[in-house]
C-alpha cells in the first residue's frame, strides 16, 4: 500500500504551513510572524492588531482583536465607505 499513489488531499499536504498565521482582515491576509511567546501582534499591511494565543510554544493563533484599535479602524473604514457612496 505504501506504493499506492497519493490522493489529491495528500498531494495538497505540502501547501500546509505550520507556526505561521495570517491577518484576520479577510481582504488583507497579511503574513504575521509573532516572536515566540509574544501576546500581541500588529499587521504590517493593514494595521489591525490582535491578541495571540500559543497552542504550543511553536504554534501561535489569533485569540481575538485588540478591541480599541480595531474598533477605531472599523469606524474609519465605515465612514470612508459611506462618504464614497
Amino acid at each position: 500500500m505504501a506504493n499506492e499513489e497519493i490522493s489529491t488531499a495528500e498531494a495538497l499536504r505540502k501547501t500546509r504551513t505550520y507556526g505561521k498565521i495570517r491577518c484576520h482582515n479577510p481582504s488583507c491576509m497579511g503574513r504575521l510572524t509573532p516572536e515566540a511567546g509574544q501576546a500581541h501582534v500588529k499587521c504590517p499591511e493593514c494595521g489591525m492588531e490582535f491578541r495571540v494565543h500559543w497552542i504550543r510554544p511553536d504554534f501561535p493563533r489569533i485569540r481575538g482583536p485588540v478591541w480599541e484599535v480595531n474598533r477605531k479602524i472599523a469606524e474609519e473604514a465605515l465612514k470612508k465607505k459611506e462618504k464614497d457612496q
Binding site: R13, R16, T17, Y18, H24, N25, P26, F50, H53, I55, R56, F59, R61, I62, R63, G64, P65, N70, A74
Partner: peptide
C-alpha cells in the same frame, strides 16, 4: 497532521471564534 486538527483538538470547535469574531 493538519493545523486545523491540532487547534481543534486543543480548543474544540470554539476555536473558530478566534477568526470569525476577529473579522466580523
Amino acid at each position: 497532521s493538519s493545523k486545523v486538527n491540532q487547534t481543534q483538538g486543543t480548543l474544540g470547535t470554539p476555536f473558530i471564534w478566534g477568526a470569525t469574531n476577529s473579522w466580523g
